[in-house]
Design a protein around this nucleic acid. Sequence first.
DNA 1: AACAGGACCAACCGCAAGAGC
DNA 2: GGCTCTTGCGGTTGGTCCTGT
Length: 244
Amino acid sequence: MVRAPCCEKMGLKKGPWTREEDQILIAYIQSFGHGNWRALPKKAGLLRCGKSCRLRWTNYLRPDIKRGNFSKEEEETIIKLHEALGNRWSAIAAKLPGRTDNEIKNVWHTHLKKRVNSNDQMVKQPKRKITRAKIIISKKETASNSSSSSPSSSSSIVSSSRSYSDLSTSVITEDNKINGQWLNSSIDHQLPEIDESFWSEVVMPMDVSLDDHQPFLQSFTSSDDHEGMDFWLRVFLEAEELQE
DNA sequence: AACAGGACCAACCGCAAGAGC
DNA sequence: GGCTCTTGCGGTTGGTCCTGT
């Protein structure tokens, strides 16, 4: 397949970066900062477009980049955040210091998506997604059915919680296959216990302030599940941002 | 050993948003 | 308000490596 070049100027190099190019870019940015990316390659003497330089720096050369395999915890975090945020890779990367959106995106497409999908097929239930649409719909359902137990609203909630809780099982199974070092590990302890009442509580507080989430959050503090509390607190905050 | 297909990941592209004029 | 430029984001590609036959 042939694509038009990102920069119309001829003579600019494309493809993998060489060690020399990396050194030039690092040396320049350490001395002068990146400033205007478009002007940088010319000033630094690189035959690259600014976009390529920025990408190389942000995805590979930045000193705070964490190289190497993703830890089990990082992968779990990605899965959780993807459930909450969708394909907002930059937002997910912001929660994982040292990891780039590109790296996370790659890991998702090569490892984690399959893991989640295989779980979905196994339970034959829709994947839970706390998206804006989902939250709004759920709120309506919850509000309209507050005095009655509608099968439609409860079924959507139950299926969501089921797919999420089954996720831990899937992770363990896939870990056995993909990475031997995680053979005996489990993430069950990091996930909050969820039942139908949980989803009612998650859905309803979106209409009110964060303070009103306290009774729900206390269910985690009382069980010493701080990671679970932290995760869901972040989900609430993200959901509130989306609502604004 | 040779080949095919899959997996992985760095790098690319197009688009949209924001800033400045 | 409209234009241009810059930056950041997400989707996608293509080269390389790995694994199975």
